[in-house]
Nucleic acid binder design. Structure first.
Length: 605
DNA sequence: AGTCTTCGCGCG
DNA sequence: AAAGCGCGCGAAGACT
């Protein structure tokens, strides 16, 4: 109500703010806090208001009347500030010279109980408390000389709701859930660094890639159009129209075996299936059509998702860098996501349409620097072995070769992984273990591996026989989920599984989460390492110029001055080993990480 | 004209 | 009852 009595105290001088903070937030007392700023980044604006809310206080502070936020920032050092999306507020504290201010992310308090997700405050207020938030003032003019009553009320409501949600989620936190929350909160400084740094794009190289793709695309359109007129398929990009077309021209025995889309039940037109069809039509014009269409789809995907958008984003920034958002625990399991652009989905180096293509080569180190990168090898199988206490699986991971064992079973005789046959069989066998990690049944495995259900069943039986504890782990998880609706993860957090928990998720979530846990400890540790070295850096060893750039689930990427790159790699290895041991004390660290140093992301060795 | 859903596909 | 996990993004087409 616009006419309601003010629920908060207006704080409008430095001395009042100082006195109040000393009185109520002197030794780690918690309070919810929310900024209203005139811009999204400290370089471009200022903090106008902060609303503060706890059981004892309800304040609205106008920094324009208190000498400005820069002057006031240090006053917040003794409190613990509950913030929704604390990375935002932390940036302003850092920019104002108060980087040690302690913030707790409300979203992480919730994620520690429910599992990850990327939700707005408005959304969770509605879900968890049934509160409807009005966000109309969010983008209003926070630089105005005089703020409206509606703006002030809005500013206050955010902190008020944040505090209510904080109480809601933390009043029954178990110690484990608290630990999980702290684990996620500890990622914030590293994520701020990644988002600030971004990654440099070699626009020129990327442009030549895009030019090549477009040339290929043009050729493919010509081929497709000689086979199918635009009267038959008007929009060459439309799978719907292609599906309708095939439904008309293909014989019934092809159509009956044609996979359908899930919701609408149309003929599915994935490029994988098109290539299979091409294989069934060798020597006919249909082979050319299916192959050309599959190729066209691939190259079109590259152009639309990894072509112009990357160049545009890079050119939008003055320094030619792309700055993706790095979203903590955006996935249900706690994994990161990245967006705008999503650097976690940049294609690996591989042959596309017979041409060796390296999109990652366009992601380069700054002048005088190198990219430094390590990834955990086989981290998910490894953590499954450790979670389930499966001795044989761990032994095979450390001293043996899981995939080769499975491959030999599949072929029915011993294999040498150095031969071509051995390599291929081993590659195929990886699919079995992935299937296990994903909780696949025989049918699912058969369809992804393109084999019979009977054979898939045999593979799974073999896996279960060799690694009984690892295989049986899913049933323990499932039992917990059915009993409590939650599963408990290795870091002490929980994930809500809904009223009807399903086996594939129960098999996979704890594994994916444990891998995330390991990476989370590593990231926090590595950031501390770099900060420590950066503070003590000398002119000849500029550790203050080493930055974390990105994490791709099981990989970590830094940028470092060339002279420090090798050293940085060692630091990273140490920190990643530490992260793993923090989650699995005493676990074997043999062959844990691999990677290296390079000019660009395409080649790190 | 703007928003939502579906499909497909890149990555781990 | 049956079940291969997790994301973000672009395009098409439907819906409002």
């Amino acid at each position: 109500m616009a006419t309601s009595k003010r629920k908060y105290r207006a704080v409008s001088s430095y001395s009042a703010l100082s006195k109040l903070l000393k009185k109520f937030f002197y030794a780690g007392q918690h309070g919810a806090l929310d900024f209203e700023t005139t811009a999204l980044r400290p370089a471009e604006g200022r903090v106008r208001l902060v609303s503060i809310c706890s059981d004892k206080v309800s304040w609205l502070v106008d920094f324009d009347k208190c000498g400005g936020f820069r002057k006031c920032a240090k006053l917040f050092k003794h409190g613990r500030w509950v913030v929704f999306n604390s990375g935002f507020e932390m940036r302003w504290f850092i920019a104002a010279g108060a980087p040690k201010t302690r913030c707790i992310d409300l979203a992480n308090a919730r994620r520690a109980v429910m599992g990850g997700g990327n939700y707005s405050l408005k959304q969770i207020a509605l879900w968890d408390l049934g509160i409807e938030m009005n966000k109309e003032e969010q983008a209003s003019n926070w630089g105005a000389k005089k703020l409206t009553r509606s703006q002030l009320d809005y500013a206050y409501d955010d902190a008020d709701t944040t505090w209510k949600l904080w109480l809601h989620w933390t009043k029954d936190h178990t110690p484990g859930q608290h630990d999980a929350m702290v684990m996620l909160d500890n990622l914030v400084p590293a994520i701020i660094e990644m988002e600030e740094q971004g990654i440099l794009i070699d626009v020129k190289h990327h442009q030549t890639l895009v030019d090549g793709w477009e040339e290929t695309q043009t050729k493919l359109i010509t081929i497709l159009r000689t086979l199918v007129s635009d009267g038959e398929v008007r929009n060459i990009n439309s799978d719907t129209q292609w599906g309708d077309y095939f439904a008309v021209i293909m014989p019934d025995n092809w159509l009956s075996a044609w996979p359908r889309t899930e919701k609408a039940g149309r003929l599915s037109c994935t490029s994988a299936h098109l290539r299979r069809l091409a294989g069934n039509a060798t020597g006919t014009p249909l082979e050319t059509l299916f192959d050309a269409l599959a190729d066209y789809k691939t190259v079109t995907k590259y152009i639309s998702s990894f072509g112009r958008t990357i160049i545009n984003t890079a050119q939008l920034a003055v320094d030619g860098r792309v700055r993706p958002r790095v979203n903590i625990a955006a996935a249900r399991t706690g994994r990161f996501s990245t967006s705008g652009p999503n650097v976690q989905q940049i294609p690996r180096n591989k042959d596309i349409l017979g041409e060796p293509t390296s999109v990652r080569k366009s992601f380069i180190a700054s002048r005088g620097c190198r990219l430094v990168s390590l990834d955990y090898s086989g981290i998910e199988l490894r953590v499954l072995a450790l979670l389930s206490g499966d001795k044989q699986l761990l032994e095979d991971m450390i001293n043996g070769d899981v995939h080769l064992e499975v491959a030999q079973e599949m072929v029915g005789r011993p294999l040498d992984k150095k031969t071509k046959e051995g390599k291929e069989a081993r590659q195929k066998a990886k699919g079995v273990s992935f299937g296990i990690i994903y909780g696949s049944g025989a049918r699912g495995l058969a369809s992804t591996m393109r084999t019979s259900v009977g054979r898939a069943e045999r593979y799974i039986d073999f896996w279960e026989g060799r690694y009984p504890d690892a295989f049986g782990y899913r049933h323990k998880v499932m039992a917990e989920a059915e009993r409590t609706r939650f599963i408990t993860t290795v870091d002490g957090g929980t994930i809500y599984m809904g009223k009807n928990p399903d086996l594939p998720k129960c098999a996979n979530y704890p594994v994916q989460r444990a891998a995330l846990s390991v990476m989370a400890r590593s990231i926090a540790r590595h950031k501390r390492t770099l900060d420590r070295l950066g503070e003590a850096s000398q002119p000849q060893a500029r550790w203050d110029r080493v930055f974390m750039l990105a994490t791709i689930h099981d990989a970590l990427i830094d940028e470092a001055p060339t002279k420090l790159a090798k050293n940085c790699l060692h630091m990273m290895e140490e920190d990643m080993t530490y992260g793993y041991l923090a989650v699995f004390p005493g676990a074997p660290t043999d062959r844990l990480v691999e990677g290296g140093v390079g000019q660009h992301w395409g080649a790190l060795s």
